[in-house]
Design a protein around this nucleic acid. Structure first.
Lengths: 118, 118
DNA sequence: CGGCGTCTTCACATCATCTTCACGGCGCAG
DNA sequence: CTGCGCCGTGAAGATGATGTGAAGACGCCG
């Protein structure tokens, strides 16, 4: 029996236990705040898709995004920072200018992949 | 199957014999009060997972956590103190602000442990 | 009775989190 | 070039959550 629709989500080396409030990166527990965790869950549940700020805000903050509110961006930054800290070199949260954010273990463009400039 | 759900639990250098009311740290017995032991057992049975205060209180005190009751925190502190006393330098009980506590022998995530060399 | 350990509750210290602001870079329309 | 919208990023202040020491009540036992 499924107690919840999304009890456990996996995205690459990430494992998110929505109910428990726990997120594992490469098997290790992440230390996330309530907002950070909420944001991660919201993105994870829509992994691979672009989620608009409006939708993100609704999901995490539980209300309409007010004009000029940057909370979303700030928390995406914090979350990115912690993820980068735990799993260096693999960007999870991708920005789609004008549209929103997308959680995905893969790079944005499959094209010139390893073109690590230099 | 397990005749008793958690007769003996091991967490790192900790060994907890729930039935016996005995807890060993690195081989030597800990001197714990009833509440402290109950708390340790509750956490140990959910090792690796975050346990909320509400759940902890239910498990150890056997009733709903009353608003404003800090007993849980106080006992986590006492237990931490004794564990630190027995096994210095390895944090077992991790705090997840806004969620609860988690028992785990490993650190949440290894920062760039500044030359803690030694 | 007196000592001892335990449990609970307080008051205060500390720390983490949340929100908002301000500045700066970037890309694009005009 | 210049203005403007969008986003990244660091920091400040207020607020809330947790850590911590201590006091009082209670029961147990010699």
């Amino acid at each position: 029996m499924e107690p919840s629709p999304a009890e456990l989500v996996r995205i690459g080396d990430l494992e998110i236990r929505a109910r428990e409030g726990l997120a594992l990166a490469g098997g290790r527990a992440l230390t996330l705040s309530v907002r950070e965790f909420g944001l991660l869950v919201a993105l994870a549940r829509n992994a691979g898709r672009i989620v608009s700020r409006e939708e993100l805000y609704e999901l995490v903050w539980g209300g309409p995004l007010r004009n000029g509110d940057r909370s979303c961006d700030v928390y995406v930054h914090k979350l990115r920072s912690k993820l980068e800290d735990a799993l260096p070199g693999m960007p999870f949260i991708h920005t789609h200018v004008g549209f929103g954010y997308r959680l995905d273990p893969a790079p944005s463009h499959p094209f010139h992949t390893a073109a690590t400039a230099r």
